[in-house]
Simulated assay, not measured.
Amino acid sequence: MREVTRKLVELLDLSPIGDDHFQGESEDLGFPHVFGGQVLGQALMAASRTVENRLCHSLHAYFLRPGNHSMPIDYEVQRVRDGGTFAVRRVIARQDGKELLTGSMSFQVAESGLDHQLTMPEAPDPESLKSEQDWGKLIAEKVPEHLRDLLTRDRPIEIRPVNPMNPFKPEKRPPHRQNWFRAMGPLPDDPVLHQCLLTYASDFTFLGTSLNPHGRTFMSKGMQVASLDHAIWFHRDFRMDDWLLYDKDSPSASGGRGFNRGNFFTQDGVLVASTTQEALIRERLG
């Protein structure tokens, strides 16, 4: 396991601070605030620590406030229900006494049943593509110095974009994006960790899908962008140290909000998770 990946695994390994209360550190990715995927991943880990012999099958969360990456985050888990098959948890993330995120997670005992899925869309092989870090190095000399580390830093999750776009010179495109994702280095055989890592990674490159038709990115002047909510459904087993295709589209944008959908597929075409997110995409004029 690479050092950057080990640090991410440790970031998700929360410390218990009381009955059904946990605390996690924050990381600085070069964004103004805590990365939303970090809070989502840690919230799922906190809830999972209170459930036995069941894995999460769905997660629904709202982002309430931006987080400060220089402070730890406290997670309170509320045990809503423990049934014979399903268990439901509510999680509240707080920092300095203020709520950052509230979410609900449902867990299920493994069982068999009817089975079908969408066909995996066409996509180039990940080994034929450059990583986001590689693309960042190609344009690093042309961007302001304070942004170079954001583009070129080592990353625990390798992202290889299909048909990448220069974030500083965007062009109008259809509301569709594809990226291959993989953790850097082998991971332990812990399905909860793999779910939390996918949750963490699912917030990368997501809201930008709704900006494609407008020729904007989160780097565009005058754009205020932020994740408002996030949902994930886990369908089948997977590993985050194997390549996963993240196929995304945006059916609608209106009222300063962009709606995004995504599906994660293994290289051999198995649909393992689905996501949705609504994001603030406000353009400040003048």
Results as ranks from 00 to 15, higher is better:
Glu127Arg: 14
Glu127Val: 14
Ser128Glu: 13
Ser128Thr: 15
Ser128Phe: 06
Lys130Thr: 02
Lys130Arg: 12
Lys130Trp: 11
Lys130Cys: 05
Glu132Lys: 14
Glu132Trp: 12
Gln133Leu: 15
Asp134Phe: 13
Asp134Lys: 15
Trp135Phe: 15
Lys137Asp: 10
Leu138Asp: 14
Leu138His: 11
Ile139Phe: 07
Ile139Asp: 07
Ala140Lys: 10
Glu141Thr: 12
Lys142Asp: 13
Lys142Arg: 13
Lys142Leu: 11
Val143Phe: 10
His146Asp: 15
Leu147His: 12
Arg148Gly: 11
Asp149Val: 10
Leu150Glu: 08
Leu150Val: 14
Leu150Pro: 02
Thr152Gln: 08
Arg153Ile: 02
Arg153His: 07
Arg153Trp: 02
Asp154Asn: 09
Asp154Glu: 13
Arg155Trp: 05
Arg155Glu: 04
Pro156Lys: 12
Ile157Phe: 10
Ile157Tyr: 07
Glu158His: 05
Glu158Lys: 06
Ile159Gln: 02
Arg160Thr: 01
Arg160Ser: 00
Pro161Ala: 04
Pro161Thr: 01
Val162Met: 02
Met165Gly: 05
Met165Trp: 04
Met165Asp: 09
Asn166Trp: 08
Asn166Lys: 09
Asn166Phe: 05
Pro167Ala: 04
Pro167Asn: 05
Pro167Lys: 04
Phe168Gly: 02
Phe168Arg: 03
Lys169Ile: 01
Lys169Phe: 03
Pro170Ala: 04
Pro170Met: 03
Lys172Asn: 04
Lys172Met: 05
Lys172Gln: 08
Arg173Pro: 00
Arg173His: 01
Pro175Phe: 00
His176Val: 05
His176Ala: 05
Gln178Trp: 03
Gln178Glu: 04
Gln178Asp: 05
Asn179Met: 11
Asn179Ile: 12
Trp180Pro: 09
Trp180Gln: 11
Trp180Met: 09
Trp180Val: 10
Phe181Asp: 09
Phe181Val: 08
Phe181Glu: 09
Phe181Thr: 07
Arg182Tyr: 05
Ala183His: 03
Met184Lys: 13
Gly185Asn: 11
Gly185Leu: 13
Leu187His: 13
Leu187Arg: 14
Asp190Glu: 14
Val192Pro: 06
Val192Ala: 12
Val192Tyr: 06
Leu193Asn: 11
Leu193Pro: 07
Leu193Gln: 11
Gln195Ile: 07
Leu197His: 04
Leu197Cys: 05
Leu198Met: 03
Tyr200Asn: 10
Tyr200Met: 09
Tyr200Lys: 09
Tyr200Leu: 10
Ala201Lys: 06
Ala201Val: 05
Ala201Phe: 05
Ala201Glu: 06
Asp203Asn: 03
Phe204Met: 07
Phe204Tyr: 08
Phe204Cys: 00
Thr205Ser: 04
Thr205Tyr: 00
Thr205Arg: 00
Phe206Trp: 00
Phe206Glu: 00
Leu207Ser: 02
Leu207Tyr: 01
Leu207Ile: 09
Gly208His: 02
Ser210Gly: 10
Ser210Lys: 08
Asn212Tyr: 03
Pro213Arg: 01
